[in-house]
Computed example of a mutant assay.
Amino acid sequence: MELVVAGALSFCLDLLLGDPGWIPHPVVWMGRAISGLEERLRRIFPKTTRGEWAAGALLAILLPAGTLALTFSVLWLAGQIHPGLRFFLEVFWGWQALAVRGLGKESSRVYRALREGTLEQAQQAVARIVGRDTQRLDRAGVTRAAVETVAENFSDGVAAPLFYFFLGGAPLALCYKAINTMDSMVGYRNERYLYFGRWAARLDDGANWLPARLSALLLVAAAWLLGEDGRGAWRIWRRDRRNHASPNAAQTEAAMAGALGVQLAGPAWYFGIRVEKPTIGEHQRPIVPEDILRSNRLLYGGSVLCLGVLIGLRCALVLGGGIG
Rank of each mutant, 00 (worst) to 15 (best):
Y164G: 02
Q124G: 15
A170H: 04
A159S: 13
R139M: 12
Q123T: 02
V147Q: 06
F163S: 01
G157A: 11
A160N: 11
V126K: 00
G131E: 07
V130E: 13
G169K: 06
F154P: 04
R136K: 11
A178L: 10
A160I: 10
Q123S: 10
A146Q: 02
G168C: 04
E152V: 01
Q135A: 10
R144D: 08
V130S: 12
A127W: 04
A160E: 11
R144W: 01
G141M: 07
R139G: 14
P171L: 15
Q123G: 04
L167R: 09
V150I: 15
K177T: 09
A140D: 13
L167Q: 08
L162F: 05
E152W: 01
D156K: 12
I129G: 07
T149I: 04
R132I: 06
V130K: 13
V147N: 03
D133I: 06
A159D: 01
R132N: 09
N153G: 03
G141F: 04
S155V: 01
F154T: 08
D138I: 14
F163C: 02
F163G: 00
Q135P: 00
L137C: 09
D133F: 11
G157S: 13
Y176W: 08
T143E: 08
T143G: 06
A146G: 09
T143R: 12
G157E: 12
A140H: 11
L167W: 12
V158D: 02
I129Y: 00
A127P: 07
L162S: 03
E148W: 02
A160L: 11
